[in-house]
């Protein structure tokens, strides 16, 4: 047997999904959607008397597999199963690697196919759930982007977002969604959707606004006006202030708990 190499060992379902998404080079949207599916599934079984037959890791794999299809980043089940098995059993010196083809592999694959179906039924085939990422570009544009535009006598900058690909490549101009604040904000959103409460009970735009607000504060950027008017300006008055404060509180509570 080859020498043991140090691989990260997931401590819970969330970390299992996170590392697996990275191993399969899945975009953050796919991982966030998987958290969303998983939380919807949990909500369904918490609110009905039906028996939930899925264990946590099977649900995690099914959620990730389904979200990879739902977000147009499909991966074959084999690609999920082989690293997943290694992540869960790699540290056990007595464990045998999962091989393909094998009976064990077929059995695991059939389990995930079945779990996908159960998840689909719970989700009622509505796989395109709005994610907070959708709202982020315009919220960022109304905050960071305002400095580019100028106004009230203040001068703006070059129109970086309007540059053509060639010019962008030549001067290495990052897109707005690739900037430091945007990346931190996207990471915040992925973390937010791990929360059962946030994923199930708050609209995507509220989570997006709250994640932006928290990220700005973490980066040392203060909101100079009242939070209410900032929220009004950034979201066009489409986010309920009470919900917003609840999400911010939940995000901060989760951070404190980590």
């Amino acid at each position: 047997m080859a020498a043991q190499v140090p691989i990260p060992e997931p401590s819970d379902t969330i970390s299992f999904m996170t590392i697996l998404a990275d191993v399969l080079r899945l975009p953050e949207e796919t991982l966030a959607m998987a958290f969303m599916y998983m939380n919807r599934y949990r909500k369904y079984y918490r609110t009905t008397e039906e028996i939930d037959f899925l264990d946590a890791h099977t649900l995690a794999l099914a959620s990730l597999s389904l979200s990879s299809k739902g977000t147009e980043s499909p991966r074959r089940l084999r690609e999920f199963l082989l690293p997943a098995y290694r992540l869960l059993h790699g540290s056990n010196p007595h464990a045998h690697p999962l091989t393909f083809p094998s009976e064990l592999y077929d059995s695991l694959r059939a389990t995930i196919v079945q779990a996908e179906l159960m998840l689909l039924r719970v989700l009622k085939f509505e796989l395109r759930i709005p994610l907070p990422f959708e709202f982020l570009p315009r919220y960022l544009d109304r905050t960071v982007g305002e400095l580019n535009v100028g106004g009230g006598g203040w001068l703006g900058t070059e129109d970086y977002d309007g540059m053509g690909k060639e010019q962008r490549d030549e001067y290495k101009v990052a897109r707005l969604m690739e900037t430091g604040i945007a990346r931190a904000c996207k990471a915040e959103i992925v973390t937010a959707l791990q929360s059962y409460q946030l994923a199930n009970y708050f609209p995507a735009r509220t989570i997006a606004a709250a994640c932006l607000y928290v990220t700005l504060r973490e980066k040392g950027l203060r909101v100079t006006q009242s939070v209410g008017s900032w929220l009004e300006e950034v979201t066009g008055g489409r986010v309920d202030a009470g919900d917003f404060h609840d999400v911010v509180a939940e995000l901060e509570q989760n951070k404190a708990g980590r």
Partner: peptide, 8 residues
């Protein structure tokens, strides 16, 4: 396609 669950 069956081996990979529901087709995309």
């Amino acid at each position: 396609e069956r081996q990979n669950g529901i087709p995309i």
